[in-house]
Amino acid sequence: MTYTLERVARQASEAKELAVHTSRALRDLRRGTKSGLSGRDRFVRHAVLRALATGRPGVNVEDIWRERYRERAAAGPAMMTVPTWATELVPSDVGAFLADGAQPLALSRLAALGRTVSLDGIGSLKIPYRPPLADVGGWVGEGAPIPVDDLSFGTVTLSPRKAAAVSIFTAELNKRATPDIETLIDGALRTDIANIVDAALVDDQPGSALRPPGLRFNVAAVVSSTATDPMAAMRADLAKLAGEIVAGGGSQPVFLVNPVQAISFGFLPGSTYGVIDTPTVPAGTVIAVDGPAFISGNGAAVVDASKDATIHEETAPAPIVAGGTAASPTRSLWQTDSLACRVILEVAWGLPAGRSAWMEGVKW
Rank of each mutant, 00 (worst) to 15 (best):
V223N: 15
D192R: 14
N174A: 08
I245A: 11
L184N: 08
G214N: 15
G243H: 15
A247V: 06
L184T: 01
P179K: 03
L173H: 04
S224P: 04
N218M: 12
E182M: 10
N195V: 03
P213E: 09
I196H: 09
V202Q: 06
S251A: 08
A239P: 02
S251T: 12
D198E: 08
T170H: 05
M231D: 13
S251F: 14
L215R: 09
A199D: 01
A200V: 11
K175T: 09
A233T: 02
G207T: 03
A232Y: 01
K175H: 14
L173D: 11
L241E: 03
G207W: 02
P230F: 03
L201N: 10
D203S: 04
A227Q: 03
I196S: 07
A209Y: 02
P212A: 07
A194P: 03
I181D: 03
V223E: 14
R176M: 03
A236C: 10
D180M: 09
T228Q: 04
E172H: 12
K240E: 00
D229S: 13
R211V: 11
D203E: 00
V197P: 11
D204F: 10
G249R: 13
T191L: 12
T228M: 00
P253H: 01
D180A: 08
L184H: 08
G249E: 05
G214E: 02
G250D: 15
Q205H: 00
E182T: 06
G250T: 12
A236Y: 09
A233P: 00
V202D: 14
Q205Y: 03
T228L: 11
A199Q: 04
P230C: 05
V223R: 15
Q252W: 15
L210H: 02
A177Y: 10
A221Y: 04
T226W: 00
T183Y: 04
K240R: 12
T183Q: 09
I193G: 03
A194T: 12
L201M: 07
P213H: 02
V246N: 11
V254P: 06
P253D: 10
P213Y: 06
D198H: 10
A242R: 08
R216K: 07
D192S: 12
R176T: 03
P179W: 12
S225D: 13
K240F: 01
F217P: 11
P179L: 13
L201S: 10
A233H: 04
G243A: 06
V222R: 15
D229V: 10
D204Y: 07
